[in-house]
Design a protein around this nucleic acid. Structure first.
Lengths: 193, 193
DNA sequence: CATATATTAGAATATAAATTCTAATATGTC
DNA sequence: GACATATTAGAATTTATATTCTAATATATG
């Protein structure tokens, strides 16, 4: 029943992602997204309650993309592999990387998210946190504040630091960054078993 | 000649800095700045050509503040000291740190800056670059691409990585971060002479 | 083939903020 | 003390975008 759709949700999310990654979230206006897709603005609002909701979908897509492979490495107990996931992922998904690493969620969509979305964000966040805690416990035998901080630094913050400069420049991180991450990893976490 | 001023440029820049640091650059509206100072919006425009110009002044103030002590350490050949400057500065100037490390210049003021301002930004940028190059040359005997990248990583990117999590949370970086920076420094740059 | 309705279509409206404009006010100088 | 002018004052205007609204359109279903 009803007319066939010319467009689908994914097209709008992808267009929004592309624009936000390329020109910053402020440039991601509804009109710009509609233009990119070739749709009228009404069709955007037919599918998304508001601009914030659209950006929320972008955010969720980006975070999920990153986190999946990261958590897999973690669950296998491969800390160094997890640390090296960041430069790999950044090379593979440059637009997504710009969104995830250049902006904070609050900048993307400041407004009130529906409970639905808050729930999804929370679930993703908890999944990451649980994965980290498990890993820390296995690696150190316990998961105190210092052990957790140290692990977050080596597996997340350092890889981020190593690539952020290149993301800003809009170029792929050179191979050197993998070496820096490796060297830092063994300095902070010790040699991998 | 003429009426005495009730306000001065610095008051507006400081108010803008405070608002941008606390609620993000988007919240730094002219009206908000005027309200914070207790001045009419006309007085803001009397002193600053546009919102972008005001944000540019904020940016310059913040960058200069950071760079001064950093370059001093660098000129003394104290690489580790320069690396540890970041957490020190972040603890001392939390608002400035939020601006510098949470946002990029382009987000703050995207528009066309006057030549005057472009010039000042360029000078600051070059000063930093020259300081880094000199340091690299002294530390490694030469300043090739790899040596520069390595140094930028250890002196700038890693300290940034170590503190960014706490800046986002709005709390002072704990003492641990200095240890992480030290350990990473000797792993990447070798023990300091 | 008639009809209900999902979807497209885009014009109209609302809103928020930047910027401009005109007037009022002090104060140093003659 | 009168005047020129730097500055305050804040109302009016413009602009950019989000959002709403009304109408048109196509298609699955009976």
């Amino acid at each position: 029943m009803g007319r066939n759709a010319h467009f689908n949700n994914e097209q709008f999310v992808d267009a929004a992602l592309k624009i936000a990654a390329g020109q910053g979230p402020a440039a991601m206006t509804i009109a710009a997204v509609a233009r990119e897709v070739g749709a009228p603005v009404g069709s955007v609002y037919h599918r998304f309650l508001s601009r914030d909701m659209l950006l929320a979908e972008v955010w969720l897509k980006v975070v999920s993309s990153f986190q999946e492979a990261f958590l897999q490495a973690l669950q296998k107990g491969k800390g160094l592999d997890a640390a090296l996931h960041t430069p790999r992922w950044v090379r593979q998904y440059p637009a997504e990387a710009r969104i995830l690493l250049l902006y904070r969620r609050e900048e993307l969509a400041a407004g009130d998210w529906q409970d639905d979305l808050k729930e999804r964000v929370l679930r993703i966040k908890c999944t990451l946190e649980d994965g980290m805690n498990d890993y820390v416990k296995r690696a150190f035998g316990k998961a105190g504040r210092e052990e957790r901080n140290r692990t977050v630094y080596a597996l997340i913050d350092v890889p981020y630091a190593a690539v952020i400069r290149y993301i800003r420049q809009g170029v792929k991180p050179p191979r050197d960054v993998d070496d820096y991450i490796r060297q830092t990893y063994s300095a902070i976490m010790g040699r991998e078993k």
